[in-house]
């Protein structure tokens, strides 16, 4: 059974090793992932945006993300935006704790009492943001929230059920798994298409032939996850069909 992950919220913590607030981001993120919202959240290590592949860099387009930063440098928020996609929400620990009138935290390996209170505060705030974000419709093609007043955009809710829902998933990191992507050439332009391998797999399993009769459905499914530049709109269907044909050929040879 091949399924795309259901809508979740990505948590990106700065994990800054030099400051107690960095440890707070890490522990608060883990608390959300493991205890508070284990089925609604997933995480990725911040440096993986650079050290990983295209799939890892697609993380913040695929998931609405919450960046949790220890200090004003905002490494998690800025790094996520620079290499993956703009975070849907952002928390800065020292600011949040100051606003709550808390003492400055201490400890790196082991946080002091103020630090542990900070973990609770940040985790609760993050969990609340997760709930807020899950109430909104997220477009994986745009990597942004859908304007509810718009009629033309395709929401995740419009996905075929088998694509939109996956089985129960425990709290986990996306490290190394990445979002499935494939590069294709359209009119000489290389495009990185999110979710294409799984879409092909799904179509192949459903017995849909790599012929023109499949093209419209294939195109509509691909557009759910990928913005299509206007100048490539005409050439894309044929390029997709060609790639799908090759995919089917490889499948048939290996089976």
């Amino acid at each position: 059974m091949v399924d795309l992950p259901k809508k979740k919220v990505g948590i990106v913590a700065c994990s800054g090793e030099e400051l107690p607030e960095g440890t707070i981001t890490r522990l608060a993120g883990l608390k959300v992932l493991e205890q508070l919202r284990p089925h609604e959240t997933v995480t990725i290590c911040l440096p993986l945006f650079l050290a990983g592949g295209e799939g890892d860099r697609a993380f913040a387009r695929f998931y609405p993300t919450i960046a949790i930063d220890g200090c004003e440098k905002r490494c998690a928020a800025r790094g996520t935006e620079r290499y993956s996609g703009k975070p849907a929400a952002s928390i800065i620990v020292d600011q949040l704790m100051r606003e709550a009138g808390m003492d400055e935290p201490g400890g790196l390996r082991e946080l002091d009492e103020a630090g542990m209170q900070g973990v609770e505060l940040v985790a609760e705030r993050t969990a609340a943001l997760v709930d807020e974000l899950l109430d909104k419709k997220w477009s994986r093609s745009e990597g942004d929230f859908i304007d509810e007043t718009g009629k033309d955009q395709v929401s995740e809710e419009s996905l075929p059920e088998s694509l939109a829902n996956s089985g129960p998933v425990t709290a986990s990191c996306a490290c190394g798994s990445g979002i499935p992507v494939q590069k294709i050439s359209v009119n000489g332009t290389e495009m990185t298409m999110i979710a294409l391998p799984l879409i092909f797999e799904k179509f192949h399993q459903a017995g849909k032939p790599p012929k023109s009769e499949t093209m419209d459905e294939l195109l509509e499914t691909v557009k759910i996850y990928n913005p299509i530049p206007e100048n490539l709109t005409e050439a894309l269907p044929q390029a997709l069909l060609r790639e799908y044909q090759e995919f089917c050929n490889r499948k048939d040879i290996s089976s």
Binding site: C14, E17, L46, P47, K73, A76, G79, L108, R109
Partner: peptide
Amino acid sequence: YEVVEDLRPDSAQLVPLSLLVL
């Protein structure tokens, strides 16, 4: 942490990876 705080505080230092990403 054990290296920079306990074992070799005078000859080793920590650099956070997040700053390198940025």
